[in-house]
Simulated assay, not measured.
Amino acid sequence: MISEMVSVPADHLTLSGDFVVPDSSRATVLFVHGVHTSRQDPATRSVAAELHRAGFGTLAVDLFSETEGRRAEAMSEQRVDIDMLGRRLIAAVDWLGIQPDARTLPVVLFAAGAEAAAALIAAAALPDEVLTVVSWAGQPELADEFLERVRVPVLFVESGEDPEDLRSSGQAAERLAGPHAVREVRGASHRLREPGALSRAAAVVEEWFTEVHRPT
């Protein structure tokens, strides 16, 4: 199994990432971080470990540099430049496409909170490179006009505890050009702190991948 810290060029800087490719990987799950979360978060590492055991590679990448990240912690999601995060995520997907151990693997974007909007922007721009998006307690509405351009399958996961979140995901889903689903998963907060949330997150990714992936 290949495991390394990597630097991903994007927007005239380099983004830090953790890249793991188990033997005979089925796909690469790209964890998107930037606003109030980090690739070094224990929750991300735990979900990634579960996915490695299930045969998935992972790239966890911070879309902010360290200096930018400190500033972002003081921002609300509404003030973050989502378009910029989308461009940087596109660069990360492009980077995967030239890695010898990952370039032939389908890419699954997994994002929570505001980063889910960046994932949808990247999916809209790269329909041939991105297999699917999993928005976990995300804010897809921040992708705005890019929603109508998304043709890849998208899964919206919400906890069901806040009807407004479910309504927002449902409205975003209706604007997509491709297939989609909205599911309630108990304890599906973007921090993944609830008991059992980590294993459920990994299981949701695996189940959704199996549902949308049709090997050629």
Rank of each mutant, 00 (worst) to 15 (best):
G57S: 13
R193K: 11
E73C: 02
G97N: 11
E148S: 14
P163W: 04
A60C: 04
V107P: 01
T58G: 05
E184D: 00
A202E: 12
W208N: 07
I2L: 14
H190C: 08
M84I: 00
P195G: 02
A114W: 10
A92K: 03
R70W: 11
L59E: 11
L85C: 01
Q99F: 02
G17E: 07
V212Q: 12
E115M: 10
S7M: 08
P179S: 09
T44N: 13
L15E: 00
M5C: 13
V185Y: 02
G55F: 03
S65I: 04
P153T: 10
G17A: 01
A177S: 12
L89W: 01
E73P: 00
V204W: 05
G178I: 07
A123W: 04
R39M: 07
S25V: 13
A122E: 04
E161D: 13
A48F: 04
A137V: 05
D165N: 09
A60H: 08
A203F: 01
E145H: 15
S135G: 01
L120C: 12
G34D: 07
R39L: 11
P179K: 04
E194Y: 08
V29T: 02
R70E: 14
T14S: 14
R200M: 13
L131H: 01
A143Q: 05
T44S: 14
F19C: 03
R79P: 10
E148A: 15
I121T: 07
P42K: 09
G138A: 06
S16V: 10
L85V: 00
P22R: 04
L59M: 07
V80K: 09
A125N: 04
S65G: 13
V32K: 00
H213S: 09
G86V: 03
A203I: 03
M84W: 00
S65Y: 04
L30T: 04
E211Y: 11
S24L: 12
T132M: 09
E145Q: 13
W208Q: 11
V157W: 04
V152C: 06
D11I: 00
I121F: 02
P195A: 01
Q40K: 10
V205I: 15
A112F: 08
E194A: 12
Q139R: 15
V108S: 10
R53M: 13
W95V: 01
Q139K: 14
V32F: 03
D162S: 12
A188N: 06
A48Y: 01
M1A: 14
G178L: 02
E148H: 08
E141H: 14
A48L: 06
W95G: 02
V212T: 14
L131P: 06
V204A: 10
S189H: 11
